[in-house]
Write a protein that binds this DNA or RNA. Structure first.
Lengths: 226, 226
DNA sequence: CTTTTATGTGACCGCTCGGTCACATTGTAC
DNA sequence: GTACAATGTGACCGAGCGGTCACATAAAAG
């Protein structure tokens, strides 16, 4: 938790510091992220920084909390409708909003990815909390969907919750790498394909099944192979 | 590429240095990995190190190449049978061998994960090469499988190749996090569930389809939710 | 032996790091 | 004005970094 001094600062200055920190943590692994660069970018003295935060870890966790709040703000409209949506509609909405979030805040995405992969004592507790949160959420939704008969009852829900929690990150990465990242039709098509794969799998099947699986765009006009 | 001096070393000593480097790169982000610790662990003088390698990047790329060779050795038996196997059998074998590889060499897994997520100028070229390699492989197999009618012809192959390339990493991670990591029945069951999800999806369907999807273990006896 | 060539060595360089501290500046109370 | 508390500041500390270099050692060549 930041020191009280930080919260006494004008909101404008708090934001400057937060933005500088986010940029730094997005650009460098935690261990290599430099307070020196953060204070330079924020336009404050190093001594001042240590009046606001106890140490680097304190700053990082503050950033993580802020990012989490912003993400929740993105997801809130969807979450409110969660009960009213079918599981796959919910999934689609969550993925789409997830892509939008990272498109609007690429640095947040970079920090999230680092958090998942990096091994640093300062980060371990935060990582466990964040990923457990996501998995519990998916697990609950999955159980409801199974109860409603939307999802087969013979799948390993723990495995599936784990996968869904990570897949949203992969989808974002794919869209950013290939499509460059606009929030557009192409993105919706990719998300649709993604969901369709999850729903009905990739195996060829008799035609009867095929049509039931259609979603927003059946053919995203991706490049064909030579 | 290491300097000639390195290859003049007794194989034993080369191995000592390689192992020390792998341990360091697995335990720390590239930027934070320390030549000082590597030479200490390898039992050589720092000056000697710079007779063997041009710099840190040189050492890291050498490690990556060695790891790639060892992985190929693991996968070779499967790859040789690739044409004879159905796509999903091939996938199952690849995933299983992938898990085995990381179980036998946890440090290699850690380095691979870092490579995918970390952003460092020294690593960018290597990352692009490695991931492109994997995707091209999957893409080729997918096209063959579509031609053989094993896989529906209306999926976005680029997206699917990307996902498969990453999913193998996720499966490994899941198995290591939950099961702790033995190469055992439990692992085979998880891989089977995984493949089954890919084949037939998670959506509930009329019973006819259900049975066609069975694979090694239909019920992996994962814990039930309260 | 001496010379030459290849290899081993650790003190050292310049730099950056996270974090501290003595002091300067500011704002309010009186 | 003075007094006092809160906040701003950057030089500084010890440590660790990647990388260098003058020199020691050793083996082979003459």
């Amino acid at each position: 938790m930041p020191k009280p001094t930080f919260f006494n600062l004008p909101a404008e200055k708090q934001e400057q510091i937060f933005r500088a920190a986010v940029a730094e943590f997005a650009a460098h692994p935690y261990a290599a992220a430099a307070i020196n660069r953060i204070v330079a970018r924020a336009g404050i003295a190093k001594g001042s920084f240590y009046q606001y935060f106890h140490d680097k870890k304190d700053l990082f966790l503050y950033c993580l909390q802020r990012i989490g709040e912003e993400k929740m703000a993105y997801l809130a409209p969807v979450l409110q409708r969660a009960q009213a949506l079918s599981f796959f509609d919910l999934l689609q909405e969550l993925f789409v909003q997830g892509v939008r979030f990272v498109q609007d805040h690429p640095a947040y995405g970079a920090i999230g990815r680092r958090l998942v992969v990096e091994r640093h004592p300062d980060l371990d507790a935060a990582l466990r909390e964040v990923s457990a949160q996501g998995e519990v959420f998916y697990r609950d939704r999955l159980e409801q969907a199974v109860a409603r008969g939307e999802i087969r009852d013979d799948v390993d829900l723990a495995l599936l919750a784990f996968l869904l929690n990570r897949l949203s990150g992969l989808l974002v990465e794919y869209h950013l790498e290939r499509a460059g990242g606009a929030y557009d039709e192409q993105m919706l098509a990719t998300a649709g394909q993604f969901i369709r794969l999850l729903r009905t799998g990739m195996e060829a099947r008799p035609d009867a099944e095929r049509r039931a699986a259609s979603y927003p765009s059946p053919h995203p006009s991706q490049g064909e192979a030579p």
